[in-house]
């Protein structure tokens, strides 16, 4: 077992998570707003259109903990006389609350921790802004608020979960594209949904982050996508960087030992 796989905390309730079914998403951004309202996340005040379809918040970041992607696709007509069609994919992205969370692994202060719900949370009063988690996250989720120095991301509404409430974004979502619950149950639900969509001919439908054997041990927040992950700005096959950490430490130890030996060698010949 690698150093990263020390498992979920033993205490507490079963692991909580999100299943975001993008086939139900109407791109309303209620999740973005509800998240900001609940967590008092600052708004962007630049007031500039990105021109990237209806997405004007662009990516997850310190001030965007839920982000809705909009992808416009041309669907070439099957017969040449007909018009090309269009598809408009919408998907709400969030921190994956990885089973093997690189951000959490590398945090030197313990600001990031795994909660009793199995989620990954930054403690704002502890974070020293070292930014290590930022470079560690394979999904590009967590980021630093420049003017503040600390990092921020989705907490899966840690405070609300503590009060037995569902996260603000999931609660708001008009079509239940965002489903919150016990991860095992969500996985079962997602499997059924996938099958249903495949039966309906939605060939592009696939689950993303559902597999506990993937590079991050499965996501605590996983997705049903209708196209390749990278189309949505998601890495196709992310791996938790700390999976290779034991190997790295071994190499480093080798190099360190080599240095010491080398240093001894250059002084070979004793006193001058």
């Amino acid at each position: 077992m690698s150093v990263t796989q020390l498992g979920m905390p033993a205490i507490g309730v079963p692991r909580k998570g999100f299943f975001t079914d993008t086939s139900l998403c109407i791109g309303c951004k209620a999740c973005e707003v509800a998240c900001k309202e609940w967590n008092s996340v600052p708004a962007d005040t630049s007031m500039q259109l990105t021109g990237e379809s209806f997405d004007n918040t662009s990516a997850l970041g310190a001030d965007t903990w839920r982000h809705v992607a909009f992808i416009e696709q041309k669907v070439p007509a099957t017969d040449p006389s007909a018009h090309d069609g269009v598809k408009w994919l919408m998907s709400s992205d969030v921190c994956k609350h990885c089973t093997n969370a690189a951000c959490l692994d590398v945090c030197p202060t313990g600001a990031l921790f795994r909660t009793e719900h199995g989620t990954v949370v930054v403690q704002q009063d502890v974070c020293n802004g070292c930014g290590y988690c930022v470079s560690a996250c394979p999904y590009g989720v967590i980021d630093q608020r420049k003017e503040d120095g600390r990092v921020f991301k989705c907490t899966m509404c840690y405070d609300r979960l503590g009060a037995g409430e569902e996260p603000a974004c999931a609660k708001a979502c008009p079509t239940k594209s965002i489903q919150y619950g016990e991860l095992d149950e969500l996985r079962a639900r997602a499997d059924a949904r996938l099958e249903e969509l495949h039966e309906r001919g939605e060939e592009g439908a696939r689950l993303y982050g559902r597999d506990p054997d993937d590079g991050v041990g499965g996501d605590g927040a996983f997705f049903l996508l209708l196209d390749e992950p990278e189309t949505y700005g998601l890495p196709p096959d992310p791996v938790v960087t700390t999976r290779d950490l034991p190997a790295m430490w071994k190499r480093a130890a080798g190099a360190a030992a080599g240095m010491l030996v080398g240093a001894a060698v250059i002084f070979w010949g004793g006193r001058k």
Binding site: V3, P9, L104, F113, V126, C157, A163, E165
Partner: peptide
């Protein structure tokens, strides 16, 4: 507190432990 890797409850700050939802 049996959290050798320091990734779970042992690193919680008092603020975190006392966190309450404002709805509650």
């Amino acid at each position: 507190e049996h959290d050798p890797s320091g990734r779970h409850h042992s690193v919680e700050s008092p603020t975190t432990e006392n966190l309450k939802a404002r709805t509650a």
